[in-house]
Design a protein around this nucleic acid. Structure first.
Lengths: 162, 162
DNA sequence: CCACATTCTTGCAGTATGCAACATTAGTGA
DNA sequence: TCACTAATGTTGCATACTGCAAGAATGTGG
């Protein structure tokens, strides 16, 4: 492999990484007063996963169950999620988004897509086409699924791109 | 603009964003026992910025000065940074990396570059070349500088890509 | 019924975060 | 020189995130 190509591509990817992370951080700013980043991640999981029990949520977020527990408590107190015992298994308590919680997820997701759209709209059609191919190849090489319709919450880890 | 292209490129970029964030998170795992993510961000800033006073650090990290204050305290207690009053201005106290602190930054940076390198090495030379161009165009359109040598800590916000 | 696993919950400790108040130091103008 | 203002660091207070460990409630298999 060409060493200069290697260095150039790593630099380019690192720079892109910084840009994307900054976008993700900004996109949360709109609701930053109402939810924290960890809380938003939980909302995203619920958005894509439907009713979820605590242990599953903790695994999806990669946090301790006690952490997920208290986050759920706070979101419930804020009226963004509701929790109720599973009638099928009284050990479990399922949580799901309220309308208000879903509104927040939609709001942030729309904002991030808008930001990305604004950037790619400043690229030429040829550049856009090249970006699709290049990112697809990169994602493929990175082991991520092609993600046919990567809507919010579809990621197994529940990362809201932040 | 072609609407399908638009949707495709946004999807591709979102997927790439998730992959890059996951890489950044993994790259910190190696030292996760010694420093937290916020602490690592502070180390990265010091790595690229040299001696830094508290208020400047708080601005670079986009946190309150009291938050930066206590983080600096903990890093100093851990032996990763040192703090001393600025002889030129006794109001200010400058902090800088110790050798141990710099070692941690280098370790994480190397790990992340290795992970990216591993991915791009699975791409064909043509794909690599296309990725360089496409990411450069994306970064350009996103307003980020071309970053001739984007080493750790060069980012003004001090984001360690996470 | 008993032993075991699963699930949720709570206690404890440490870290991150912001706001507000305060002390110290520097600069500035009368 | 003296007062006023600004910059800087520091601390108190409150809240949120985090993991570990222990316990309670529930289900499962024998």
């Amino acid at each position: 492999m060409n060493g200069e190509d290697q260095a150039a591509v790593i630099s380019a990817v690192l720079a892109g990484s910084r840009l994307l992370v900054a976008i993700a951080a900004r996109s949360l700013g709109a609701v930053g007063d109402r939810v924290t980043l960890p809380q938003f991640r939980m909302l995203v999981v619920l958005s894509g996963h439907g009713e979820t029990k605590l242990v599953t949520m903790a695994e999806l977020l990669d946090v301790n169950s006690s952490t997920a527990m208290r986050m759920a408590d706070r979101l419930a107190a804020a009226g963004l999620v509701v929790r109720e015992v599973n009638p099928m298994n009284r050990r479990e308590s399922l949580m799901r988004l309220t309308d208000e919680g879903r509104r927040i997820v939609d709001q942030v997701t729309a904002r991030r897509r808008d930001e990305i759209a604004a950037i790619v709209s400043r690229m030429s059609p040829a550049e856009r086409q090249a970006l699709i191919s290049a990112m697809a190849a990169f994602n493929e090489a990175g082991g991520e699924p092609a993600a046919p319709t990567p809507e919010a919450g579809s990621h197994p880890l529940g990362w809201p791109d932040a």
